[in-house]
């Protein structure tokens, strides 16, 4: 299975998938920590987190998957939602809560 197939399986097989540096309990980058904090404030309990620092192939592959060169990346029901800046803005204007609610 190719890396792109693995990623497709991960993002379609889980409701909320976050590609990040570190883990939700121990984020290793401020932007990843921000993404986790926002999801927690939205009440998401079931984050499927992928630590790209432990999976170098995924770390490269995910940048191509959504044509997005940075990490973290959030996917909800298989759809790419955004990175740290977009999550922050969507959380502030209430859009993210809507996306997550719709996907519940």
């Amino acid at each position: 299975m190719s890396v792109q197939d693995t990623i497709r399986q991960q993002v379609t097989g889980h409701r909320v998938v976050l590609y990040m540096k570190g883990t939700p309990d121990f984020p290793q980058c401020g932007f990843s920590a921000n993404a986790v904090r926002i999801l927690q404030m939205c009440g998401v309990q079931d984050i499927f987190a992928v630590n790209v620092l432990e999976e170098p192939e995924i770390r490269q592959g995910i940048k191509e998957y959504a044509n997005w060169p940075t990490i973290p990346q959030l996917y909800v029901n298989g759809e790419f939602v955004g990175g740290s800046d977009i999550l922050t803005e969507m959380f502030q204007n209430g859009e993210l809560q809507k996306v997550l609610k719709k996907a519940a």
Binding site: N67, W68, V81, G82, D85, I86, E89, M90
Partner: peptide, 10 residues
Amino acid sequence: SMVQQHQLVY
């Protein structure tokens, strides 16, 4: 969309 806007910058 915001995603597309950021992609243009990237």
